[in-house]
């Protein structure tokens, strides 16, 4: 073992360690972005959905985290469209039967787990619509594409949106984004939409 190789091993190690410790974004992002934060309680799933969940887990976690699909709220028709879109990506390998299964699980998850989570938000933060709106922002998965104050996906920051848009504009942008937009129309019922927009308006 020569001196130079020891030196470069040491330097390499030190560089990795320093970047890691400093929490430098390039180093850290790679480690944190792919953590799954949402756990599905499999024992709650009826048998046929359980099978569908396994297909979902095997096929939809290859390129991005399952969170990408478990966070946003979309209608059943939108999920079917997303799954069809994913099936047409290069290197995604599932057939139409598996695609149906996956869409079935996602629709089920929408009306059970996701709905229950939003119910709970209404119950715990009833007094403050802004706090509830903030939680709904998470719950509807807005943060998988948007960030607020640096938290979430910084590709599209919504900071200051409150002073740029009116209530009506915001509502429209969320449920029916302009055609050609990469944002999917979000399936947010009127009550939640009010709360969500109340929160967005505070982002000045």
């Amino acid at each position: 073992m020569n001196r130079y190789s020891i030196q470069s091993a040491f330097l390499g190690f030190a560089a990795v360690g320093l970047l890691w410790l400093a929490g430098a974004r390039p180093a850290n992002a790679q480690f944190t972005q792919n953590r799954e934060t949402i756990q599905i309680n499999q024992s709650d799933l009826p048998p046929e959905i359980h099978q569908a969940y396994r297909t979902f887990k095997a096929k939809c976690g290859m390129c991005h985290t399952l969170d990408t699909s478990l966070k946003p709220s979309l209608s059943a028709a939108q999920w079917t469209a997303v799954v069809k879109q994913m099936q047409a990506m290069a290197s995604s390998h599932f057939n139409s039967r598996e695609a149906d299964q996956i869409a079935k699980f996602l629709a089920y998850d929408e009306i059970h787990r996701k709905a229950a989570a939003r119910e709970a938000i209404g119950a715990t933060s009833g007094s403050s619509p802004v706090a509830a709106g903030k939680q709904l922002f998470e719950s509807y998965g807005c943060s998988s594409c948007h960030s607020v104050a640096g938290a979430g996906n910084t590709a599209s920051a919504l900071d200051g949106i409150g002073s740029k848009r009116t209530v009506e504009e915001l509502k429209k942008l969320i449920v029916s984004p302009p055609s050609g937009s990469t944002m999917p129309p979000m399936d947010v019922p009127a009550k939640d939409l009010d709360t969500l927009v109340t929160y967005l308006l505070t982002l000045k």
Partner: peptide, 17 residues
């Protein structure tokens, strides 16, 4: 925001994507 496996079977071997 993708995993390495979106484009590699295992780095550095590229998949079709």
């Amino acid at each position: 925001n993708l995993k390495c496996s979106a484009c590699h079977t295992i780095v550095p071997v590229l998949n079709e994507q």
